[in-house]
Amino acid sequence: MEHGNAEDGGLDVVVTTLASDSHTWNLVFLQLLLEEMGHRVTNLGACVPDALLLAECRRIVPDLIVISSVNGHGHQEGLRVIPALRACPELRRTPTVIGGKLGIAGADDPDRERTLLSAGFDAVFEEGGSVAPFREFVDGLRSRVLL
């Protein structure tokens, strides 16, 4: 077990959005979904400044960081945040995913996913039918943590 403490099988998960994004229904939904899957969620709410995101993740040392953004700036802001997260020794290998509506030009942009992955995200979930793959990803983590 590398991250957090996953006793009774649940993961410690930080659910967050990015600094410019005031939407929260997506965060409410993700918290309910993850809690129903048996995980413990810290939900950071709307418009999370980079410094607060880093401080909370360093304090909690979660098993998973879920970044959700739907205002179209998620791609830009995700690329800004992920190097800062990876620069923290305790978060260097923490599974970190991003999803939502990440750009202003629609969902089908393979370059966007590639850029985000190579910048350090472990997975990218674009809006539209992405709940099942997200669940699979989280289920995969749980089994990895339990090993």
């Binding site: 005031s22 939407h23 229904w25 997506n26 739907v70 205002n71 509506k101 809006e127 539209g128 039918g129 709940v131």
Partner: peptide, 10 residues
């Protein structure tokens, strides 16, 4: 109808 609601309100 899409599978999930889109354009959650700002």
């Amino acid at each position: 109808a899409p599978p999930v609601p889109r354009g959650l309100p700002a």
